[in-house]
Design a protein around this nucleic acid. Sequence first.
DNA 1: ATATAGAACGAAAACGGTTTCGTGTTAATA
DNA 2: TATTAACACGAAACCGTTTTCGTTCTATAT
Lengths: 339, 339
Amino acid sequence: MKAKITLKDIARELEVSISTVSKALKNSEEISRDTKEKIQAFAKLYNYKPNNIAISLKNKRTKNIGVVIPAIVHHFFTTVIRGIEKYANAKGYNVIVCLSEESFDKEVINMEMLANGSIDGFIMSLSSETQQKEDYNHLKEVTEQGIPVVLFDRITNEIDCDKVVIDDQLGAYMATKKLIEQGRKKIALITTDDYLSVSKARTEGYRKALLESELEINEARILKLSTMEVDEKSIRNFFNTQEVDAVLCVNEIFTVFSMRLVQEKGLSIPKDISFIGFTDGLLSKYANPSLTVVAQHGEKMGEISAQMLIDKVESDDGEERFQTKILEPTLVIRDSTFN
Amino acid sequence: MKAKITLKDIARELEVSISTVSKALKNSEEISRDTKEKIQAFAKLYNYKPNNIAISLKNKRTKNIGVVIPAIVHHFFTTVIRGIEKYANAKGYNVIVCLSEESFDKEVINMEMLANGSIDGFIMSLSSETQQKEDYNHLKEVTEQGIPVVLFDRITNEIDCDKVVIDDQLGAYMATKKLIEQGRKKIALITTDDYLSVSKARTEGYRKALLESELEINEARILKLSTMEVDEKSIRNFFNTQEVDAVLCVNEIFTVFSMRLVQEKGLSIPKDISFIGFTDGLLSKYANPSLTVVAQHGEKMGEISAQMLIDKVESDDGEERFQTKILEPTLVIRDSTFN
DNA sequence: ATATAGAACGAAAACGGTTTCGTGTTAATA
DNA sequence: TATTAACACGAAACCGTTTTCGTTCTATAT
């Protein structure tokens, strides 16, 4: 086991000072050709690499960015991470991922752990519990300490920081419009409680499209699930009591699950009933029939978030100007609707 | 913006030495009651938290663990991360995730970035390119430096370290046996090239089961895809030329894609043909019909990996004893096979 | 009154770098 | 020959902790 070699080791071995070694390795003009070559050769031979921690301490910059998300076993979030990784890595940053698992407390703990010097900034999406409680003190503290934060997807207006979202309302609006164009009249919406910022916006888009088309908004056709898990009983009951010819769901899982229920009842998709979901993940592509969805462009969202964060981190902090980037959702047409 | 307060700040403000503050905050016996109370009160008031980086430098321990995986948009890997997070967080560790994206070079770069002090140990699964090249020098270097490594799922025998895998051979064996028991005679295998350790093991399990049951092994019934992406043409061609009554696939995606193809041909699942896949993910649960799969227990795998790694990190390094944990796969029966 | 022990605290080294500011040597210039 | 500038290098501070080893002072024992 050959332990890591340090500047001190090189200095001792070559009988020069630590400063000389440091400068030589940075190719400083101050050091003579000969000395530089000698030191550089020695360093290469012993595979010297500066210690990141020491550099972080000196520079007060870790080159780490903290990502706090509610869950990772969700296609959307994994694509966002991928985008973040892509941009961050290219810029020499590492990504520390923490999961809140939709819990407020975990979110707070994770942020506190990271905020004590481990990272240069946060990219995060709020846990459902946090959005429910509307308690954002942990975010306030962090921003007040001057740590940059970028919020994506599940955001809040309570915090002044950069934000990246897709236009959820527009997405739902586009989807609903599409269904209306195809002659659907009784369009259902399966969503979660309004405390989730995205669900709320999507519900608004749905309503807007119906209003515009002078279709009645039948509240009974809006199913609000209190949890993000598939509440089989509620969904089953919904389809047993409501007669609908199209369904918009706020995620993939609700969609494929609903499709199965109506297929069991002998309905044909999209002949008798159409479906549109949110999130262009594996399920959408491989479901049977494949799903028409509102794509959220998670990877792009991750890249933009990372870019905004790193810009802030590396800027000389002159002014505090925050922006909110709103990405346009895209409708990906597949077989759960007509073309 | 109130910047973070340091020991030095407290010392200056309270007119004591830095050492006294440090000791007082750790409730050292050396410091008088009065002084301790005064310092602790002050620290709490200004919300003092020690700087992680400084502590890392001092202790030569970062409380970070590096996770290097080939991809994150894969259900299996996300469940593993979840397991790692769960255990690591409970032990006060943070998880730095790096993606190799199946690339050897990225894997090497990521490891080098992290190996210079950023982490206390690695948990990783090899990229396909690495397994193909069989070049493990980056791993050797890291282990030689005394950095603990735990390999999971995609492992190699070339490296002496702890390992966690499921018994892939057994998984494939169990699955194949199940199909045989149900009267299937012409069982196909859709896999990837053998350089992937897991694919190789699964192929062996498949062969073993057939041999045991004295069924012929028809090499034409084994489809080896050169990439992990869905090679639509090859798969389509395979089903057009081969007559089979059951299919074992090494992942979910191959399975659902194949199911669709045969469904298009008018076959009924599982009446005419059965399917079993690997990985108990969303696709399996929500496919139509739902998938019978060999569950890999990713979350458990992650937990165990984290446990093994942290044990090593925190042990006093007395001896170098490495173990390989082999988890038992489980057959999850759903609707793509008979019961 | 003197030696001694313990209490309470501070100085300084250490972790591994970077960087500023000397300083000694040499060579060029007046 | 004296002055000066350039060159090549080293000392030391600094980042924020922890920790060892004094040191000072007081109180007790002799």
